[in-house]
Structure formats: C-alpha cells, structure tokens
C-alpha cells in the first residue's frame, strides 16, 4: 500500500495563527495563549459542556425556511464536488454583540460530538460558517487541516459578501454568495499548493 505523504502545515500556511479570544499571534502548538491565558476549557466555562450536534445546517433560530435550507445544502454539495475534503457546517444563531463569534465557533468545533459517520479527520477539515441573526455578523472557524490554506484575510471577501446580503435581509443569499466567493478563494489556494508541490519536486 503506498504511503500518503503528510506535510507540515508550516510548509503551506500563508499566515500565522492567532488566539480566538484576544487575536494575539500564537504558536501552532501552544497549550494556552500567553497573552490572555485562553484555552479550550475556558470556552467550555463560557458556553457549557453540552453543545448541540454540529449538523451540516444547524438553524436553531429558524433563520432559513426548509426550502432555503435545501438550497444551501445544494450549494454545499456543489462545493463538495470541487473540493471534497472541505466539510461545511452552516450555523445560524442569535448571540448578540457581547458574544465573540470566533470563541463561540471555536467552542462548537471542539466540543460538539462527532456526528455518526464523521471522523476526526473530517472535523479537522471542517469549515464552520456562523451567522448571527441578531447582529448580522458572520464568522468562519476552520479545523486544523482546513485552516492552512486560507488566512483570516483571505476569508474577508467571502464574509463581506455574506454581510452585505444580511444587511439587505437576504439570509439565503448571504450563504450562497459566501460559498461562491469561498470557492474562488479555495481555487486560488489549491493552485498555490500545486505550484509549491511542483517547486518542491523540482528542487
């Protein structure tokens, strides 16, 4: 059986990682944030230990109609045909400005149990889109394997698309536009990764 080569994330990462709580730059293998002391257990103190299952479309606030959810599922499926490794989770919540979306997303990604059929690797490839119906804010939280390819700045155009649609009250368009823009960003990221691999092979 041929071995699949695993690369170090540093080889492909285009940006450093930051603390979801205080946004300070941290090391990829740090156990806690040296600036604010944030760890995973702190998020559990904030949000509890019993999160809902992290379903592909988690709409606890009825932001989307069933028909709209079908359209979102369809858009996710189309994305998956192109980038099958990326697992999408689209979550609508009502949090408010006082709650940090990045920390909430961090909590959901790590504390939600794996769904039936979902592996650890699947969760590491997961990208969670959080839509706050209360504020109209949107955020992206990425698993360890997905975070390497796009930096926080790379996500801004896609999130801007989503926010723009949310401002207009079109919550469905917010997601579909986001996915369309995200796909374009991943296309660039993929080409970049292939170029890097070729360079490495040449040297």
């Amino acid at each position: 059986m041929s071995e699949i080569r695993e690369f170090s994330p540093k080889r492909f990462a285009i940006a450093s990682v930051t603390c979801p709580s205080c946004q300070i730059r941290i090391e990829r293998d740090t156990k806690w944030c040296e600036a604010c002391g944030f760890t995973g257990s702190k998020s559990m103190d904030m949000f509890g230990e019993n999160p809902p299952p992290l379903l592909p479309i988690l709409d606890v606030v009825d932001l989307w109609t069933p028909k709209e959810q079908k359209k979102i599922a369809s858009a996710v499926k189309a994305f998956g045909k192109r980038f099958p490794q990326i697992k999408w989770r689209i979550c609508a919540v009502m949090l408010g400005a006082e709650v940090s979306l990045p920390v909430f997303g961090f909590w959901l990604m790590n504390v939600c149990p794996l769904n039936t059929g979902e592996t650890e690797e699947d969760r590491e490839w997961t990208v969670l889109l959080l839509v706050d119906g209360k504020t109209g804010n949107t955020s992206v939280t990425t698993g360890y394997r997905a975070e390497v390819w796009l930096s926080d700045e790379n996500w801004v155009p896609a999130l801007a698309e989503a926010s723009s649609a949310m401002r207009q009250g079109d919550t469905l368009q917010a997601v579909t536009n986001f996915l369309k823009t995200a796909k374009a960003s991943f296309e660039k990221a993929w080409k970049r990764s292939q170029a890097q691999l070729k360079q490495e092979a040449a040297s």
Binding site: V17, T18, C19, P20, Q23, I26, E27, R28, D29, T30, K31, W32, C33, F38, T39, G40, S41, L101, P102, V103, G105, F106, M109, N110, E120, R123, E124, T126, L128, N137, T138, S139, V140, T141, T142, G143, Y144, E147, D152, W155, V156, L159
Partner: peptide
C-alpha cells in the same frame, strides 16, 4: 493548540 482537539480557532469575522 490551546488543548483543542479539532480546531485552534481563528479570527475571520
């Protein structure tokens, strides 16, 4: 990192 099994979190908002 940060004791998290699947995601180290980020700040794309």
């Amino acid at each position: 990192r940060l004791g998290a099994p699947y995601s180290g979190g980020n700040n794309a908002v």
